[in-house]
Computed example of a mutant assay.
Amino acid sequence: MARWGGLAVLPVMAAPAEYGVHLQARIQPLMTGVGPVEAAVALTAALGRMAADGALPDLIVSLGSCGSRTLEHAAVYQASSVRYRDMDASPLGFEKGVTPLSDLPALLPLPCPIPGVRCASLSTGGAVISGAAYDAIEAEMVDMETWALLRSAQSFGVPLIALRGVSDGRAELKALEDWTSTLHHVDQNLAVALDALIARLEADGLAALEISADHGLDPAHLLAPDSTA
């Protein structure tokens, strides 16, 4: 864990390919693996061990790449909200994205504390989105981990910030290189955003994470029912 502004912060990433030299000079993240299942399992296991030791982080920062058909290529954005696009119980009468028999809405807000870093909405799912598949996506960005990471963090009462750099989306993906070819630019831009986040946390602490009322959801509702945080 890192310590920024007196806070214990756990950086989290999915894949070593996204962890370039600029981030390597700043953080040693928990690597979860790719996709919502791997992300949830790895983070929950890590937080469980930390909770047992009485050493939960004050904040989790998720960093990585994303796809977007509309946003600036290689630029970094703060995720202002996240949806779980794989959840669809609409045949049972539930809104698409709503987990049945839970109190969770389809969209969960996220804090955007970094001045000068643009915010965008995010959609998480287990499939790589490319080409015409974007037509079914409501959000501006797509990834494969953030919703799962957020739900894990919420179960321990720990806030989470998600920073995503756009690695693909302009053209249809046909090979692994179509994703990895931009990651060195994403790494550099994530490091710049991370420096700005560290400065904000050092100045304001956790108060920087306050979610504004225009998100339309009381942040208290985001904690798991058994959370004491």
Rank of each mutant, 00 (worst) to 15 (best):
L223A: 05
I60F: 12
T124A: 05
M144E: 12
Y84L: 10
L59P: 13
E72L: 15
D135R: 09
P57G: 15
A17W: 15
H185E: 15
E72F: 03
E177Y: 04
L217R: 02
Y19T: 04
E140H: 11
E72R: 15
L107N: 14
G97L: 03
P225Y: 09
V158E: 06
P29I: 14
G54E: 00
G216F: 10
L63T: 12
D226V: 12
P100G: 02
A17Q: 12
P225A: 14
V9M: 12
P105R: 03
A133N: 02
S68T: 00
A14V: 09
D226F: 09
D58N: 07
A14R: 06
L122M: 10
L107P: 02
M87N: 10
H184R: 05
H185Y: 08
A207S: 11
D135F: 01
V61T: 10
L56W: 01
I114C: 02
Q78K: 05
L108P: 06
A133V: 01
W147R: 04
L92Y: 01
S227R: 14
E95F: 01
V192S: 03
P29S: 09
A229P: 01
M13A: 11
A224I: 02
H221N: 11
S123I: 02
M144V: 14
K174D: 09
L108Q: 12
A40K: 02
A17P: 11
G64Q: 03
A224V: 03
S167K: 13
A8I: 06
H185A: 11
I161G: 06
D214H: 04
D226N: 12
G126Y: 00
S65V: 13
Q154R: 08
